[in-house]
Write a protein that binds this DNA or RNA. Structure first.
Length: 804
RNA sequence: GCCAGCAUGGCGGAAUGGCAGACGCGGCGGUCUCAAAAACCGUUGAGCGCAAGCUCGUGUGGGUUCGACUCCCACUGCUGGCACCA
């Protein structure tokens, strides 16, 4: 290591100094210009923080430090999202208790985060596994429950019959087998807790329009919510309730030639003739098996069975045969459809396979299921109406008049199931009383502590391992005092993370989830930076929880994150880092070798922060060399004694650099900001003569968000008072940004042929004269007159000449 | 299949209507050294030329424009999301 820049000593020195002075412990009560800079808290895995985490935290920290130098009181907390099935599975695998594992993982994460040099407010950290935290996660659940937003319902869960455990969706492999043992997964219906996020779909959708978020993230949320406007239509059944279907194309109803139910539609067997029931029941069982397996083969599109009965067309009275088929899903719309094979490709494929009639009712289609885009035909009184609009409204209205239909909006977003039949999570604070049913645990009895049971293996009954601990579950009913049992399921880890940002400012309070005064002062979050992999679940749940707490009187805002920016992904060998791929890069060795500052710089310099990039260890020496050069300049200046006044060219370069870094940093265009600083350093090195002090002073300030330790060191050696991070951001002087001379390109028919220097602001006429006067240009023109001259002031003169 | 985003030297990237390749990595040549590393200096899109310089060049094909990496149309490939959502 070159002696001019000993990154190890410098970084240790300043980290210690920051800790001692409490530089980053922003006083929350007194702050005058609060700025809440949030980043997604990590899951403390056993491998330690990887480069992807470092990338996200570095970028968020650069942003926070920049805001601090803009004069804000920045609050930049960090915490640990440590509950969940990953921890639990890992603990099972290595046969240790998750409590022990998590504690050491967190210690390791904390050590790594401290080395990175982030301005974290460590006194306000949270750990979701800490009873002092999940006390309030349980409170949140109770609050939502009391607000009518939590309910119990039976729903299917994925179940491994070999491991006897409930599986998360992502633990089911593509072929429908368990990821751990390869056994085919089945479904079991269990009574579970749900949060009524579906009550908020419209607000979740509308709110997006007002938010300053990455467009990609908003788009993902819109798709996930999946709003679709259509009609619910009732097709009468002789001797039974009408069959209800959902369609977005009510205008094509005259083209409906058959009906299709999802195999697991509740009325499938009822609508089957008695003699076909055995065959249909067998088909339904087979279809269910394939659905769990997630089979996506081609044949699924054409697999189905005739039920032997018909529905009556509400307008024509014709009989439409009813089928059950796998291409119709029970969980969406009405779980049943009217099939219009002439104008829907899936219906078309099915009609072909079962030799069902195809009737075109929109002109201009290709007859194979395309939508067409003309007028209605073969549609009785509606012929000639433009399709799809306004025809679908007119048709729906006509059917509504007969009492057989209405306009309906449907969504893909389902209610949020939060029950987990596992161990490693906060117990759901409910008590089941034989007399009173499910009763909330009284708030003064929170937290319901997760017992330290030694055997936390899944039980095999569809219940949580807590169900083997009578000491835990045996209790009394809070209402009647009779014998009762605690809920033994724990809650989803997304519930923990749905409100953690509310906790940070109040992390040390024990009298409530979040202090009203601090919350009013610090929230909503000013900037939230995180990965787009959480675009729909975490970010949507957090918005829902904030809206719900708002409606229940706990918050005075509805949207928790005013500004959200998605950062890119760091990949290695073209693949996202993950332990299963074996390509996790742990940053410690690079920080040892190059220092946290050079490492941060390398990560931020790779490309636009929103894009991520490929991690290549080669290349970190570039930023390190850059820092070394600055320290060499510093040593040179110190050796030369007090430098004289700053030469004009260097002052201009300095102000251009300030300008660039100042505009790029808040836009998270860190790569170009760093490039500007590198260019400036290059310029300084080329300069003969003493290094002007303002150059280094400015560099220390501009570098502070990016390389917080090196910037402190330079700042101190220049004789300035602690700390560089408390200085105001430098301002570019507009007068210094004006160039003395500009290079004007002269081109003929768009090709560069010469160049001249001119004063900025030279008039177009004058530039044209200068251009025409150039000997080189006259040579190219060879006597021809330009038919047109385009002058771009201060930049270019383009001469248009015929026949060149 | 649908919806986004992306495509520029050996590599990461810059420039979003006006000098393509800033800045960095790597390579090549040199300085220092017994030597090596580090560092420093020079050079580095391709082709032609002794040279001044010229020609070509931003995934492919068209278009708009005095002028296109940039805007429009079509296509190809990659990345991410959704995926029988009626």
């Amino acid at each position: 290591m070159p002696q001019e820049y000993d990154h190890g000593a410098i970084e240790a020195k300043w980290q210690e100094r920051w800790r001692r002075s409490g530089l980053y412990e922003t006083p929350l009560e007194q702050a005058e210009r609060p700025y809440y800079n949030l980043m997604m808290f990590p899951y403390p895995s056993a491998e330690g923080l990887h480069v992807g985490n470092m990338y996200a935290f570095s970028g968020a920290d650069v942003h926070g430090r920049f805001q601090r130098m803009q004069g804000y009181d920045v609050f930049e907390p960090i915490g640990f999202d440590a509950f969940g099935i990953h921890s639990e599975n890992f603990a099972l695998k290595v046969d240790r208790h998750p409590t022990d594992l998590i504690a050491s993982n967190i210690r390791n994460f904390r050590r790594q985060l401290e080395r990175l040099g982030g301005q974290f407010a460590w006194s306000k950290t949270v750990e979701t596994t800490d009873p002092a935290y999940y006390h309030w996660t349980q409170w949140l659940f109770l609050t939502l429950w009391k607000g009518g937003l939590a309910y119990r319902a039976r729903r299917n869960v994925k179940w491994c019959p070999q491991d006897l455990t409930v599986l998360a969706d992502e633990q089911v492999m593509a072929d429908g087998t368990c990821e751990r043992c390869g056994t085919p997964v089945v479904e079991r219906e269990l009574e579970q807790w749900f949060l009524r996020i579906s009550a908020y779909t419209e607000r979740l959708l509308a709110g997006l329009d007002q938010l300053d978020w990455s467009e990609s993230t908003k788009l993902l949320q819109r798709h996930w919510i999946g709003r679709s406007v259509g009609s619910l239509l009732d097709f009468p059944i002789d001797g039974g309730e009408p069959l209800r279907v959902f369609t977005t194309r009510a205008d094509t109803i005259f083209g409906a030639t058959f009906m299709v139910l999802a195999p697991d539609h509740p009325r499938t067997l009822e609508l089957t003739t008695p003699e076909l029931r055995p065959a249909v029941a067998a088909y339904v069982a087979e279809a269910t098996r394939r659905r769990i397996a997630g089979v996506r083969e081609e044949e699924v599109a054409t697999r189905g069975i005739y039920l032997g009965r018909s529905a009556r067309h509400p307008l024509t009275g014709r009989n439409l045969p009813i089928y059950a088929a796998e291409y119709v899903l029970s969980g969406y719309g009405a779980g049943a459809i009217m099939a219009v094979p002439a104008h829907d490709s899936r219906d078309h494929a099915f009609a072909k396979a079962f030799d069902l009639p195809i009737v075109e009712v929109v002109s201009g289609g290709d007859g194979t299921g395309g939508h067409g885009g003309g007028a209605l035909v073969n549609s009785g009184e509606f012929d000639g109406l433009a399709a799809p609009d306004p025809a679908r409204e007119v048709v729906t209205a006509a059917i509504a008049e007969r009492g057989l239909g209405r306009t309906h909006v449907t969504y893909k977003l389902r209610d949020w199931g939060i029950s987990r039949q596992r161990y490693w999570g906060p117990p759901i604070p409910a008590i089941h009383c034989p007399v009173h049913g499910a009763v909330p645990v009284p708030e003064d009895q929170l937290p319901v502590l997760l017992p330290q049971i030694a055997d936390f293996r899944p039980l095999g009954t569809g219940e949580s391992p807590l169900a083997r601990d009578p000491e835990f579950f045996n209790t009394t009913c809070p209402i009647c005092g009779g014998a009762a049992q605690r809920e033994t399921d724990v809650s989803d880890t997304f519930l923990d993370s749905s409100w953690y940002y509310l906790r940070y400012p109040s992390a040390d309070r024990s009298d409530g989830a979040f202090d009203p005064g601090l919350t009013r002062k610090w929230l909503p979050v000013d900037t939230y930076i995180g990965g787009n992999e959480h675009a729909v679940l975490h970010l949507l749940y957090s918005r829902f929880v904030a809206m719900a707490l708002h409606d229940l009187g706990w918050l005075d805002f509805e949207e928790p994150f005013t500004r959200f920016r998605a950062h890119g992904t760091i990949v290695q060998n073209g693949a996202k880092m993950s332990k299963s791929r074996g390509n996790v890069v742990v940053p410690d060795e690079y920080i040892d070798r190059f220092g946290a500052d050079a490492f941060r710089l390398y990560l931020m310099y790779m490309g636009p922060f929103s894009e991520g990039g490929e991690f290549r260890a080669t290349g970190i020496n570039g930023p390190q060399r850059f820092l070394l050069q600055i320290f060499r300049l510093l040593a040179r200046m110190e050796g030369e004694g007090q430098a004289e006044a700053e030469p004009r060219v260097l002052a201009q370069a300095r102000h251009r650099c300030i300008q660039q870094v100042t505009t790029d940093t808040p836009e998270l265009k860190f790569n170009t900001a760093i490039a500007a600083m590198m260019s400036f350093v290059k310029r300084l090195k080329e300069h003969q003569g003493p290094v002007p002090r303002p150059a280094l002073e400015t560099l220390a300030l501009l570098l502070a968000p990016y390389c917080p330790h090196a910037a402190e060191e330079i700042w101190e050696r220049l004789g300035n008072p602690y700390s560089v991070h408390q200085q105001p951001w430098p301002k570019a002087d507009p007068a210094m940004l004006v160039r003395d001379q500009v290079a004007v390109v002269i081109s003929i028919n768009g090709k560069k042929r010469d160049q001249l220097m001119a004063l900025p602001g030279t008039s177009p006429n004058e530039l044209q004269e200068l251009a025409l006067g150039s000997p080189r240009i006259q040579q190219w023109l060879a006597g021809r007159r330009p038919s047109r001259v385009v002058v771009v002031p201060d930049r270019q003169v383009n001469l248009v000449v015929a026949g060149d």
